[in-house]
Design a protein around this nucleic acid. Structure first.
Lengths: 169, 169
DNA sequence: TACCGCATGTAAACGGTTACATGATTAC
DNA sequence: GTAATCATGTAACCGTTTACATGCGGTA
């Protein structure tokens, strides 16, 4: 992905500092990404270089100026171009699936504990998500939560199916 | 993740060359990872250094020797230790969710095409998966396919739900 | 003859995480 | 007084992708 377009998109709504962008992401996009300053600041610098952003310096007494970034027309162009092309297939490193596959050469009870642990974790994830879903303001945000929730539930169902399959044998 | 444990796990089944490992992954774990030689060979070198693998050189006429890697007892220990601890939460860069969120500041029809496109893509993914699921040998592999398929279906249901929600308004 | 499969790698670039460094202001 | 918040960044490291480099043997 690179956080380039996310930054562009957030700045298209309203001009902000890098710090603000971080907060926004933490508040509204926790389930989507987890970008740190180490990613965000260099991204801003690159976008500025390319002319996709402008920067406005706001001096503060006794410390370095605050830097407010604004999206440029060029930036808006790049953003809408990106939004219109299909999102790349999610490249996921599904560590759990690797583990599942590798239990092939291990005793059956290893497989069963792997599945049971995963079920507990998924259950916990669902509960945690439910808690965060209370203070959601806009539909876009609630759609994301709904999406993630759906995937969690699908995984739960799958886990139960597999466990049932095994215990029958 | 790092492909360290995957390599260890595959070599626990049978000794192989780096080339063989690549083929295995392509054949059986396409939905889980996509490791290239650029990842695999350095990983093998590191594991060898740490004593988790042994290497056996098999000379070939007229070209460099083939290198067959074997897992050591130390390697087996490391592998089972890893398998037993819970798999880290899948850190996913869900590009599609970023796009979904960013349609906030775009006209409604942009949102609708985004969803429609995604639906087409997901449908295509499901069909492609169905095709691959025919020549599956062992249950571990079929579980993985079932898992991925479940997630695809969950996404489809979600997409339809959201689209219905919007068209009502 | 031309291409595919076998088999080894390296190098550059990219994207991200973690930890570090700085320092004022505000709330408890 | 102490901790959190505001606000900037850099540097080292890690894992991965992509492209490149090499070259034999078998198949169409």
């Amino acid at each position: 992905m690179s956080h380039k377009h996310l930054v562009l998109g957030l700045l298209a709504e309203t001009p902000m500092t890098g710090y603000d962008i971080r907060k926004r992401i933490q508040e509204k996009l926790r389930d989507v990404t987890n970008a740190s300053y180490g990613t965000l600041y260099p991204t801003l610098h690159k976008l500025l270089d390319k002319g996709l952003l402008n920067m406005e310096e706001v001096p503060r007494k006794g410390r370095p100026a605050k830097k407010i970034y604004h999206i440029t027309d060029k930036g808006k162009g790049e953003l809408t171009r990106w939004l219109r092309k299909p999102a790349g297939a999610d490249r996921i490193k599904r560590e759990f699936l690797v583990k599942l596959y590798l239990t092939r050469h291990l005793p059956e009870n290893e497989l069963l504990t792997l599945l049971a642990n995963r079920r507990d974790e998924t259950e916990a994830n669902i509960k945690a998500l439910k808690r965060t879903s209370d203070d959601v303001e806009d539909r876009h945000q609630s759609w994301i939560i709904d999406y993630v929730m759906s995937l969690h539930h699908a995984e739960m169902d799958w886990l139960k199916r597999i466990e049932a399959q095994i215990s029958v044998i």
